[in-house]
């Protein structure tokens, strides 16, 4: 345990990257997820088609492949860089891959939420003269979002854990699981306690997330 605690700076540095990956990807995947949901309920068939192809395509691709495509494919093979330092370049490519992937699950949750909004709400908004976009923004999505806070919490937990793939899939982001592997490789820490330590670290991140979203979902629930 001493060896583990002696390397606490490495552990904390690892988890700081985990948190940064999670927060940035959560933000972008939420935005993209909302856009995809809006497209999937739009009256324009081409919009619906594009969003469906995207969601079904990416969500059924293993995340490792998505991240390899970003890292080895676009970043290395095509040489597209997003930042000057390698550290931040791979970070942003990992964020893009994680966001592109997670957005599908955000969108599927939100779409389930849209289906819980009674048709009467939409009709009432239409009869007031609200346009399609206003209807979506003011009436449908706020109610849909409130009904899927719990599922979105699960998506966020999955995202937190999925950040560990960002280091194995050709993108050497120094997040927690990579720090752990480095500590094993360098033989500076005993395996089992280190392993348990990192697992606890993830629990410390994800358990409160789950509790918070559970509480929030009750708090914002729409009474009918």
């Amino acid at each position: 345990m001493e060896a583990f605690l002696g390397n606490l700076d490495k552990v904390i540095d690892g988890f700081s990257w985990t948190v940064r990956l999670t927060l940035c990807s959560a933000l972008f995947s939420f935005i993209l997820g909302v856009v995809l949901t809006a497209m999937r309920v739009s009256p324009v068939p081409m919009m619906r088609g594009l969003a469906t192809v995207y969601v079904e395509g990416i969500r059924n691709t293993p995340l490792t492949l998505v991240l390899l495509f970003c890292g080895l494919g676009i970043n290395s093979a095509l040489g597209v860089a997003l930042a000057d330092s390698v550290k931040w370049d791979v970070f942003w490519w990992a964020v893009i891959g994680l966001s592109a992937y997670t957005a599908c699950f955000v969108s599927e949750s939100l779409r389930a939420g849209v289906n819980t909004v009674p048709l009467g709400q939409v009709e009432a908004a239409r009869s007031l003269g609200l346009t399609f976009t206003q209807n979506l923004r003011l009436i449908v999505l706020p109610q849909a979002l409130r009904s899927v806070v719990g599922p979105l919490g699960s998506v966020l937990i999955a995202l937190t854990k999925n950040t560990t793939i960002a280091s194995v899939a050709g993108l050497g982001v120094q997040e927690a699981s990579r720090q752990m592997k480095l500590m094993f490789d360098q033989g500076i820490a005993p395996v089992i306690p280190t392993f348990i330590g990192f697992a606890l670290g993830f629990l410390i991140l994800t358990l409160p997330t789950g509790f918070f979203f559970g509480w929030l979902s009750k708090r914002v629930a729409v009474a009918r």
Partner: peptide, 22 residues
């Protein structure tokens, strides 16, 4: 938009009220 504008001039009261729940 033309339809939306016209609907704004035609008030509607529904059997099931349909007040915005949120």
């Amino acid at each position: 938009r033309g339809l939306a504008r016209l609907r704004s001039d035609v008030g509607m009261v529904f059997q099931s009220f349909n007040l915005f729940a949120h």
